[in-house]
């Protein structure tokens, strides 16, 4: 339906990544990010002055402070000054902005990072402020309840079953068995704890490099063969809760369907989202390879999407996979979706 437009693009690869996630971190954002940024620079032998562009993603509401990203910039060591930008989005979109910069031909290397510390605040309240401020946010619906709304819809339409949810929870590793799943009480009916994310503080740093440079910095660069992102309507009453058109469109544009996928690193922090997205993308519900670090077990808002890309790159570096889909999402009920295809082949 949509032609993939990435063939003529400059080849860019993920050449290094470093991440950390913990349930509650005592470090400041700066203290958390310095070791991660240092590690990717050391691995590639690049110092900050040799990096063409730096871009990050984070949220003031999550941090509970205005201009929170300004302090975190200290972790980069931006002296002398750097060419730099910031998105108030998941780091996956910072990577997208950076990829665009590569396409201008202006840069050969870049640093991308993002982080989130949900632990200081009440994340369920924080996420409610992301909803339409006139009609929805004043009701303070929490993220679990909204996901349950969608799950209820899909169950009643017979599009998914309770067994699907249980299987997904087992695959994600939030429970060991179906039996354990069904023993859990409801958290937000029809969802149980095993269907819902455990939040974690964390961050991720990454180095990107263009063709010609990437091969020098990494034995097996994880080439971005396609990347695209789209947004859907915000209003639940307008959206078809059985579909994620933005995900499908972004997947087509990113060339997801052009060849087989060995591994899908999906930013799905609810079982119901995992199942729905797999259906939308025609991915198997029982994949032969699963993520080693499913976001249901450790959801780090603002970093989870970029973490998926880091995990996908890792699978390529370690030769576990050759063509990997990394996905990032934002907004209630996966309203906004980014698809990034990474490959061991430059293409």
């Amino acid at each position: 339906m949509y032609e993939s437009m990435v063939t003529a693009m400059r080849k860019v690869a993920v050449v290094a990544a470093s991440s950390r996630q913990e349930e509650k971190m005592l470090d400041t954002e700066v203290e958390m990010m310095i070791p991660l940024i240092s590690k990717v620079r050391e691995e590639t032998g690049l110092n900050q002055t040799e990096i063409g562009f730096t871009c990050s993603g984070s949220s003031d509401f999550l941090a509970g402070q205005a201009f929170s990203f300004v302090m975190t910039l200290d972790a980069v060591g931006p002296v002398p000054p750097i060419s730099e930008s910031h998105v108030e989005m998941d780091g996956a979109w910072a990577l997208y902005e950076t990829w665009v910069k590569f396409q201008m031909g202006a840069i050969d290397t870049a640093l991308v990072y993002s982080y989130g510390k949900p632990s200081p605040g009440s994340l369920q309240d924080v996420l409610s402020t992301q909803l339409d401020p006139y009609y929805i946010a004043p009701l303070w619906p929490d993220a679990h309840s909204i996901a349950a709304l969608q799950a209820r819809h899909l169950l009643e339409q017979d599009e998914i079953s309770h067994e699907d949810l249980a299987n997904c929870a087992v695959r994600a590793g939030t429970v060991q068995s179906q039996e354990e799943y069904f023993d859990q009480p409801m958290l937000a009916d029809p969802l149980r704890q095993a269907d819902c994310p455990t939040y974690a503080d964390g961050g991720v740093a990454m180095i990107l490099a263009a063709e010609g440079k990437a091969e020098e910095l990494c034995e097996r660069p994880a080439w971005i063969t396609g990347i695209d992102h789209r947004i859907d309507s915000h209003h639940f009453g307008v959206r078809d809760l059985s579909a994620i058109p933005s995900a499908k469109k972004a997947a087509s544009k990113a060339g997801v369907y052009d060849a087989g996928i060995d591994l899908a690193e999906l930013h799905t922090s609810y079982t119901v989202h995992d199942i729905l997205l797999r259906k939308e993308l025609n991915l198997p519900l029982d994949p032969t390879r699963s993520s080693k670090n499913h976001p249901i077990k450790a959801e780090t808002l603002m970093a989870s999407g970029l973490l998926r890309i880091a995990e996908a790159a890792r699978a390529i570096w370690e030769q576990e996979a050759n063509r990997v889909l990394a996905h990032a999402t934002s907004g209630p009920l996966m309203q906004q979706n980014l698809m990034c295809v990474l490959s061991g082949e430059k293409g």
Partner: peptide, 28 residues
């Protein structure tokens, strides 16, 4: 975002800007 009390308001403003089905970025 504290100026309006809405976290990542581009999420709910996408429709008003005809962005549905399109790429939308938010810079800060």
């Amino acid at each position: 975002d504290f100026f309006e009390g809405v976290m990542m308001p581009e999420i709910f403003l996408g429709e008003a800007l005809g962005a549905v089905g399109k790429p939308m970025l938010r810079v800060h």
